[in-house]
């Protein structure tokens, strides 16, 4: 019995084993939203209620419901995640994922600290005053932990992901090159408000992440 010509069977090669990119995107977005929004809601709600007096039973019930919802969503995401179960992974893939999860954990912790210590009447995403001690902690984490974590992550990822990251940086850099002077000029012409560095920062981060994601997963 002769072996079939592999070139004729190319279409039948199982190259994805039911990996679903869009299922991952949807579940990842749902899980990320739940992880960010529900703890923030719980913290904000508790803080707001404590300002009016001690917590009541209905408050505890609302907080319990939020916690339950978070657990259910996390469990659902974990169970429904497209099965790579049983499929092996290179050690570097596990390491890079651990670095990302650690960064997400640190980010969520900082976010909660910022919400909890926020001055009364000051929105979190505003230019209002921040407690100097908290600001010092956040700056220290941003300038010490984040660069080290980024370096560690870059050393663990494979060349494909490193390429995606570099291309994201390249396009994001050009986005900044075009956006920042155009906004500055538009402000001087009276068409736009003064440039907000944090908005520019968020736009650049979004472009960078979008390019990285597209190169990596699509």
């Amino acid at each position: 019995m002769t072996k079939p010509d592999p070139s004729t069977t190319l279409d039948h090669i199982d190259d994805a084993r039911d990996y679903s990119t869009f299922k991952r995107i949807a579940l990842g977005a749902l899980g990320g939203f739940a992880l960010l929004f529900l703890p923030a809601f719980a913290v904000g709600f508790t803080k707001g209620r404590l300002g009016q007096g001690p917590l009541e039973n209905t408050d505890f019930a609302i907080l319990a419901a939020a916690a339950l919802l978070l657990i259910v969503i996390c469990f659902a995401v974990w169970r429904l995640w497209p099965a790579e179960s049983g499929e092996p992974e290179a050690p570097r893939v596990k390491q890079s994922r651990m670095v990302i999860f650690t960064c997400m954990g640190v980010g969520a912790l900082l976010g909660m600290i910022l919400v909890l210590t926020q001055e009364p009447g000051v929105e979190m995403f505003s230019d209002g005053p921040i407690n100097p001690i908290i600001a010092g902690v956040v700056i220290a984490v941003w300038l010490l932990f984040v660069p080290i974590a980024t370096l560690k992550w870059l050393r663990t990822v494979d060349e494909h992901e490193a390429d995606a990251y570099r291309e994201g940086a390249f396009i994001a850099g050009h986005a900044y090159l075009f956006l920042a002077p155009a906004w500055w000029m538009a402000h001087h012409a009276g068409w736009l408000p003064a440039q907000d560095p944090m908005i520019v920062f968020l736009i650049i981060c979004t472009v960078w992440s979008a390019v990285w994601f597209a190169k990596r997963y699509l």
Binding site: P6, R17, P88, E89, V93, V157, D158, E159
Partner: peptide, 20 residues
């Protein structure tokens, strides 16, 4: 395919991700 490896199995042997 000739070796009946999945992408993930090949990825581990090459020390890269399945996406790579």
């Amino acid at each position: 395919a000739e070796r009946d490896w999945s992408q993930a199995e090949l990825a581990v042997q090459l020390d890269v991700s399945r996406q790579a």
